[in-house]
Computed example of a mutant assay.
Amino acid sequence: MIRSVLSLKPKAGQSQELVRFFEVRKIPERALASPGCLGVEVQNLLPDGEEVLVTALWASVESYETWLCSVGRHEDGVQMKPLLAEGDDAVGPARLYEVARFATHQSSSVPR
């Protein structure tokens, strides 16, 4: 399994709008419809949203590469640009990690 990690730097005060952008464009749902996508998370850095982190779990590097070439991906980037900070570091390099080990709860209910 592969974990993709993408760091986005929103304009000041725009982190919630950037997260909403992912909801409106249904990016997580579209990724999940791509073969080999096992899960997607859009995360907002606490306390004040200076970074939005997008991670996804993929069956393979090839499944991730298929997503990169999918319809609408380029347009997402174009439409997202006004929400991002100025500069070359507004979109970090996409990083891929091989998932070496993981653990999950076997039960669907987790005690609080």
Rank of each mutant, 00 (worst) to 15 (best):
G49E: 09
P10K: 02
L68I: 07
V24W: 01
V54Y: 03
A103T: 10
V19N: 09
S7L: 07
P35S: 13
L32I: 07
L32E: 10
E23G: 05
L46V: 06
Q79K: 04
V61E: 15
R25L: 10
P10V: 06
R20H: 15
E51G: 00
G72E: 10
F21S: 00
E62V: 11
R95T: 11
F21Y: 14
A85R: 06
V42R: 09
Q79A: 10
F102Q: 09
V99S: 02
A100M: 10
V40L: 00
E51P: 00
V91H: 01
K81P: 03
C69Q: 15
E51Q: 13
R101H: 11
W58I: 00
I27W: 08
R30G: 02
V110W: 10
K26S: 13
T66H: 13
F21I: 05
R30L: 15
W58R: 01
V61H: 15
I2H: 05
L18C: 06
S70E: 09
S7Q: 08
T66W: 05
T66N: 09
V54C: 03
I27H: 05
A90V: 04
V54A: 06
G39M: 09
P93D: 11
E75T: 13
V19A: 12
T104Y: 06
L6E: 04
S108L: 09
G13H: 05
G39F: 10
E23Y: 14
P93M: 07
L84M: 03
V91L: 08
S109R: 14
P10Q: 09
V99Q: 02
P93A: 12
A94Q: 11
E86L: 06
A56T: 11
S4A: 15
W58E: 00
S15H: 13
P111T: 09
L46E: 10
L68C: 14
V52Y: 00
A56C: 14
V71M: 05
D89A: 04
E62W: 06
A94I: 14
L45G: 01
L57P: 00
S63P: 08
A12N: 07
T55Q: 10
L6P: 12
W67E: 08
V19W: 07
D76R: 01
T66P: 00
G13V: 11
K9N: 10
Q79F: 03
S63T: 13
L6N: 13
M80H: 01
S15P: 10
V52E: 01
F22Y: 15
L96R: 07
Q106W: 00
D48V: 12
A103R: 04
I2K: 13
F102M: 10
L46M: 14
R30T: 07
E50Q: 15
A12P: 09
V110S: 01
S7T: 10
R101M: 08
V24T: 15
E65L: 15
Y97S: 03
A94W: 08
V24L: 12
V99I: 13
E17W: 07
A56F: 03
V61Y: 13
P111W: 14
G36C: 02
A90P: 06
A94C: 05
